[in-house]
Design a protein around this nucleic acid. Structure first.
Length: 321
DNA sequence: AAACACACCAACCGCGCTTCT
DNA sequence: AAGAAGCGCGGTTGGTGTGTT
């Protein structure tokens, strides 16, 4: 069957989002929650297609997003998961709270791929990269040999496994790490333990709990970081932000279950709390907007999605602070 | 200081799956 | 059962920032 474009292309804006557009989208979702994406642009007064709005929200504006580079542990987890799942970025992202599939995909393509190749690992198969498959480099053969001889295996389950792509990556990563900073086998074991714990703590869509709105704390960055450039505004300097300007805010009790904040819309998010203190680093314009009175949160929500429990004035006051 | 190359990442595109009628 | 609509996913592109010559 033929498929129409996701939206009438005529008259719709493309390209980088402006602060004003972000404001509109955030404002809309804050007041109405997430509903039919196709209707969002119309209702929010945006000249974008619904798809673009959804993408902007899930990949950038969602308040529970972590910014900045993936940590070593996250990176390791991504590699492990990629070995199991392949390029199913949304599935991989579901194991990394606060990370989006797009972010992980980008990180994979720009960092991890290179790193693995450098280490002699095929980023696609997670097996040794060799010109002649029957003749792997000595160093790689050693990896397998050493791996089998290792007395400090990460788990009995691992030990029981036959050598796999996963194990190979583990050993290569372990060695690379040792070469890098001289950490011991025990240290790596603890790293892997941590990752296993992360794995155990991650959960899928169906396990996503609902949050008590009163538990939600939001960081409030300073308005001074507002940039006039859409792009620098978007990039935000890599997101190391947070830091000393953190203020805690009560967040309106929108009907946003964790599921709705799930990665790439599957609702598969797995946070013990939806937003970290470092969140909202890109929401500086929100504060600025309140300052200059351009952002008005609707004090009269029209459905159960909107906040009700929190006193409007205290919420606004805290936002302005 | 200017030009160029490279790296990074937000956003777009098209397809597939699911749901609705 | 079939078509239509909506949404999500994965691949790709293009703009911007940063480093190098």
């Amino acid at each position: 069957m033929g498929r129409q474009p996701c939206c009438e292309k005529v008259g719709l804006k493309k390209g980088p989002w402006t602060a004003e557009e972000d404001k509109k989208l955030i404002n809309f979702i804050l007041t109405h929650g997430q509903c039919c994406w196709r209707a969002v642009p119309k209702l929010a007064g945006l000249l974008r297609c619904g798809k673009s709005c959804r993408l902007r929200w899930t990949n950038y504006l969602r308040p529970d997003l972590k910014r900045g580079l993936l940590s070593e542990q996250e990176e390791k987890l991504v590699i492990d998961l990629h070995a199991q799942l392949g390029n199913r970025w949304s599935k991989i992202a579901s194991h990394l709270p606060g990370r989006t599939d797009n972010e992980i995909k980008n990180h994979w393509n720009t960092h991890i791929k290179k790193k693995l190749k450098k280490m002699g690992v095929d980023p696609v198969t997670h097996k040794p990269l060799v010109s002649n498959p029957s003749d792997p480099p000595q160093s790689l053969q050693n990896h397998h040999q050493q791996k089998e001889e290792q007395s400090c295996s990460t788990s009995s389950a691992d030990a029981a496994k036959t050598p796999s792509a996963d194990n190979f990556i583990d050993s290569v990563l372990t060695e690379a790490k040792e070469e890098e900073d001289g950490t011991s086998c025990m240290a790596n074991a603890s790293l892997l333990e941590t990752i296993e714990v992360m794995d155990m703590n991650s959960f899928c869509t169906d396990e996503v709990p609902l949050i008590d709105p009163s538990d939600i704390l939001v960081a409030c960055p300073p308005s001074s970081s507002i940039s006039s450039s859409s792009s620098s505004y978007n990039n935000g300097g890599g997101g190391g932000g947070g830091g000393n300007f953190i203020q805690e805010l009560q967040f309106p009790d929108l009907d946003w279950s964790y599921g709705e904040f799930g990665n790439s819309g599957d609702g598969d998010n797995q946070h013990s709390k939806p937003w970290d203190d470092d969140d909202f680093i890109n929401w500086d314009f929100l504060v600025g907007s309140v300052d200059d009175k351009t952002l008005m949160l609707d004090p009269h929500p029209v459905n159960s999605c909107q906040r009700s429990a929190l006193d409007q004035s205290s919420w606004t006051n805290e936002l302005v602070q």
